[in-house]
Design a protein around this nucleic acid. Structure first.
Lengths: 109, 109
DNA sequence: TCAATATACCTCGCCTGTCAATGTATATTT
DNA sequence: AAATATACATTGACAGGCGAGGTATATTGA
């Protein structure tokens, strides 16, 4: 990973929710998709990822269930809730606003 | 302030340096300019602001000097260094990259 | 006149998100 | 049989942000 991770800080939840809107998924897979999407520039650290899952579940944004144990290592699948979808939309709006604001404030006048 | 401050996290230094590129300034003034520019949507908390000054001075990005005591309360002025200008340019490039990446990762496909 | 407000700086301690390190277990590949 | 990939999880430390508290001077308005 080469991008300044500090700048992505705070967007972890939105990134995860964005994946779960498409389909239920599990930690390892979500991270692989993110790495691929970002062309290897970014990845969620495992500790960060699983911390985020706990936080999102705690907040009622996602729910989890164990996948079929018959294939490979056990997987904990996550599904986005209605509240999670609302939260995702809110986070997107906040990102648009923050982006506009930061652009405004760091420009060289 | 109404914008999610967590999303601005990590941009404090860039925001301050952007102001100091234009002219030497001091904490209180910088904060007022930011509030005005953002139309009251954002302000740096004092603790955040002064912590950032220490950090930036420590890093050699800015230098400071006391202003004329004859008018009003004493002011500590800050000036951006050559290294600070380089850092600012780097932070801007990193922001452009981070922005692109976040847009990519939080989009609904 | 004098109380309130504005200007201006500073620090302490807590909170939160991130992450390196470490651990567990199974499946596949060599 | 060993190495690698898949998959999840926790602990402890770190860094940035910030609420709360403090100091001091200047201006304004009742």
């Amino acid at each position: 990973m080469s991008i300044a991770a500090d700048l992505i800080r705070g967007h972890t939840d939105a990134i995860i929710l964005a994946q779960l809107i498409k389909k239920d998924s599990y930690g390892y897979e979500i991270n692989k998709v993110i790495q691929k999407k970002s062309d290897g520039l970014y990845e969620l650290k495992e500790a960060t990822l699983y911390t985020a899952f706990r936080r999102l579940e705690q907040a009622g944004c996602i729910s989890s269930y164990w996948g079929d144990k018959n294939v490979g290592a056990r997987r904990r699948y996550y599904a986005i809730t209605d509240w999670g979808k609302e939260s995702y939309q809110r986070l997107r709006r906040e990102w648009d606003e923050a982006k506009r604001l930061i652009d405004l404030l760091i420009e060289e006048e």
